[in-house]
């Protein structure tokens, strides 16, 4: 096509469309299906020895077996309890500290260096200490998750409060709103998107730390199940446990997405 051929009319070629990736639901399901079938075919043809990687079918069988004999429910129940306690307590404490750091300069001056110093410590390294303090029962497992959740929550809550538009706070002050009401009606709702985004990170961390938390003295729990399957070289069960963990991750992320849609419907 060229412009300027005398008297000839050509339509203008469309060149727009932008660069806006849109999620295509079918594509993600298809990708899953393709990967799993390729894996299954490789296993069945012998290209992937079962010793090194069990097939998806074997993993499904292992899952079905623990579901059938009731151990799945015990593992899930034990882990969900630990996650629920550890995450909730870690989140409550993290929000309290993080929001205080966002609001009060004293808390901020004290908190930032302490959090920066303690956040990078791998909580798994503290496990022996936690066991000395809390024993080998539930408290040390909950504490492991709690600690892992606490620090990222502090940081996300603190920066979420810090990022509440200053003009809104000025507006509240210009109407002589009492301090507590400015915090409750402007700062906290304004920090909500950042806090909820932090929940996604902290819930993933809780899942990651589950395995570490259940290393010591846990008879039941998905993390304990994965560890013992690893110790016993039962790779199909090990991967079944991993599948459980990632399904749990998907479930939690779906719940959080619902919560976000509800709480942040104004966005």
């Amino acid at each position: 096509m060229s412009i300027g051929d005398s008297g000839k009319e050509t339509s203008v070629r469309f060149r727009g469309g932008g660069f806006a990736p849109r999620p295509k639901r079918w594509a993600s399901w298809l990708a899953f299906a393709v990967i799993i079938s390729a894996w299954q075919i490789a296993s069945m043809s012998g290209a992937l020895p079962a010793l090194f990687l069990p097939s998806p079918y074997e993993i499904a069988l292992a899952l079905q077996a623990i579901a059938a004999d009731g151990t799945l429910a015990r593992h899930l129940g034990a882990s969900l309890g630990r996650i629920a306690w550890g995450w909730s307590l870690g989140t409550l404490a993290g929000l309290a500290v993080g929001i205080s750091m966002g609001i009060w300069s004293l808390a901020r001056s004290v908190g930032i260096p302490i959090v920066s110093a303690l956040f990078p410590i791998p909580k798994i390294a503290l496990l022996p200490l936690l066991i000395l303090w809390f024993g080998i029962g539930e408290p040390s497992k909950v504490a492991t998750i709690l600690l892992g959740v606490f620090f990222p929550t502090v940081i996300s809550a603190y920066s979420a409060v810090d990022n509440v538009p200053r003009n809104l706070i000025r507006m509240g002050q210009s109407f002589d709103m009492p301090y507590a009401q400015i915090v409750r009606k402007i700062v906290l709702p304004g920090a909500m998107p950042g806090i909820l985004a932090g929940f996604r990170i902290s819930s993933s961390i809780a899942l990651i730390l589950l395995v570490a938390a259940e290393m010591i003295g846990a008879e039941f729990g998905i993390g304990a199940f994965i560890l013992s399957a690893g110790n016993l070289m039962q790779t199909d069960q090990l991967l079944a446990g991993v599948v459980l963990l990632s399904m749990l991750g998907l479930l939690i992320s779906a719940l959080l997405a619902r919560l976000e849609r509800r709480v942040l419907k104004w966005r």
């Binding site: 022996p128 066991i131 000395l132 080998i136 290393m215 010591i216 003295g217 013992s228």
Partner: peptide, 21 residues
């Protein structure tokens, strides 16, 4: 008997000394 996996022999020694198992 309630079984408590502790991952390592040092952990076992620590647990028996402190009476956690």
């Amino acid at each position: 008997v309630a079984l408590k996996p502790l991952q390592s022999v040092p952990n076992m020694i620590g647990a028996i000394k402190s009476g956690q198992v």
